[in-house]
Computed example of a mutant assay.
Amino acid sequence: MTLFKYATAILMAMMLALPAAALSLDEAKGRLESAKSSGQVGEMPTGYLGVVSGGGEAEAIVEAINEARRAEYARIAEKHDIPVSQVEAVAGKKALEKTPSGQYIQVNGRWVRK
């Protein structure tokens, strides 16, 4: 097998494995508190989650939860005829306020332990 064919085969195998890494919304919700408590995931003022330190399922959790938040923010914005950015800002402010001590929040673009 040539190097090109070998590299292509590895790339194809990796691409096929990617969907398996995705989490359902329910799985992500079930793992969110642990990811926040361990410092892997934090709240951002944008209304979305961010990866504080990679590893484990942090990225998959953030992706699944943020996708659901994005849809909900759009629904709320449309219902009240306001910009999505306004909904995101209010949600972000509330999320930062509700974050318990010891967990991470993003302040001025930097992750800090609340």
Rank of each mutant, 00 (worst) to 15 (best):
M1D: 12
L3P: 08
F4K: 15
Y6W: 14
T8A: 14
A9Y: 11
I10R: 15
L11N: 13
A13M: 12
A17P: 08
P19C: 11
L25R: 12
A28C: 06
K29D: 14
G30L: 14
G30P: 12
G30R: 15
R31E: 15
L32P: 00
L32N: 06
K36T: 06
S37R: 14
S38W: 02
G42Y: 09
M44C: 13
M44S: 11
M44G: 08
P45K: 08
T46R: 01
L49Y: 05
G50M: 10
G50K: 07
G54V: 04
G55R: 02
G55Y: 01
G56T: 00
E59W: 05
I65S: 03
I65K: 06
E67N: 10
R69I: 07
A71S: 15
A74S: 11
R75E: 14
E78L: 11
E78R: 08
I82F: 02
I82C: 01
P83M: 07
V84T: 05
V84E: 10
S85G: 15
Q86W: 13
E88C: 06
A89V: 00
V90N: 13
A91T: 06
G92E: 02
K94L: 07
K94A: 12
K94T: 10
A95V: 03
A95Q: 08
L96I: 13
L96F: 10
K98L: 08
T99L: 02
T99Y: 01
T99R: 02
P100N: 12
Y104E: 03
I105W: 06
Q106C: 09
Q106W: 10
W111C: 05
V112Y: 01
R113A: 13
K114Y: 03
